[in-house]
Write a protein that binds this DNA or RNA. Structure first.
Length: 276
DNA sequence: GCCATGTTTCCTGCTT
DNA sequence: AAAGCAGGAAACATGG
């Protein structure tokens, strides 16, 4: 299979978010601190000392999220599903490809990747918290969504011919993220919250600044999660058990007495309007 | 194969 | 009474 007739390459109207472009954007990053990739939990996940050519899809998404964060661009500005790509595909994309898939954000992404290709380093490692900020937005079922979206999880990656502009080199000796396997549940939830246009009343912020949110359609969310995990028998009952495990890790905090209400904890990243 | 992590599944008991 | 919530326990999937 190649292109899923038409809708694969389409960018939802919501993408044209010129307004999200920070005026301060400049085409070049300075890389004052190329030496450190923070170790520990974050570092394990954020291994961008690996050449982009060798990124997994997961790492591509990380880069995407990080780049948006660096430029303070809202995560809703681009459809992440358009970037369900391996590093190789990403590296073979042209400027126009970026513009097509990310609209006005495309040039920023293009430039960011170009810098990485040449330097092999991510700029300003201390500008943000590496690692936890990664977003994966699966395609939501058309039946639930108010608009038609790219239907295939993997189709985008097939849009591009794989070229090999970069040869393996010593710089790629870093380990892959330890346990990526796509997004974790809490990230999945977070990303629904952060993408209102993909969140047709599934989950709602109760207190945005405090990170309190509520499930409006608990079973629908569970089904979406199940779809993502290729598990058709997922239920809110089971999903909520996984959510409760997050309390101990302080990814979530308990909210007593309120059904279907959760709160992001100190170890949850990437949900704040102005992170870092 | 072993181990760790992050769920998934099932269950009992309790609360709203 | 139904739907949630709390956790324990064990199974499972993945990746290192």
């Amino acid at each position: 299979m190649v292109l899923h007739s038409g809708c694969s390459m389409s960018i939802p109207a919501t993408v044209s978010a010129e307004s999200q472009l920070p005026a301060s954007w400049s085409p070049h990053y300075n890389c004052p601190d190329v030496s450190m990739v923070t170790p520990g939990y974050a570092g394990r996940l954020w291994s961008q000392d690996l050449h982009p050519q060798y990124w997994s899809k997961y790492q591509v998404w990380e880069w995407l999220q990080q780049t948006l964060d660096m430029h303070q661009i809202d995560a809703t500005s681009i459809p992440f599903s358009n970037f369900d790509l391996e590093g190789r595909q990403l590296c073979s994309m042209t400027y126009q490809d970026f513009t097509r898939l990310a609209g006005s954000i495309g040039p920023i992404l293009y430039q960011s990747l170009a810098d990485l290709k040449w330097t092999g380093q991510y700029g300003s490692a201390d500008m943000f918290t590496p690692g936890d900020i990664k977003t994966e937005l699966d395609d939501l079922p058309c039946s639930i969504l108010p608009f038609k979206e790219e239907p295939s999880f993997y189709s985008t990656s097939e849009l591009f011919e794989i070229k090999t502009p970069f040869q393996p080199s010593a710089m790629m000796a870093s380990p892959a993220p330890s346990n990526p396997r796509g997004t974790h549940l809490w990230e999945f939830i977070r990303d629904i919250l952060l993408n209102p246009e993909r969140n047709p009343g599934l989950i709602k912020w109760e207190d945005r600044s405090e990170g309190v949110f509520r499930f409006l359609k608990s079973e629908a969310v569970a089904q979406l999660w199940g779809k993502k995990k290729n598990n058709s028998s997922m239920t809110y009952e089971k999903l909520s058990r996984a959510m409760r495990y997050y309390y101990k890790r302080e990814i979530l905090e308990r909210v007593d007495g309120r059904r279907l209400v959760y709160k992001f904890g100190r170890n949850a990243r990437g949900w704040r309007e102005t992170e870092k």
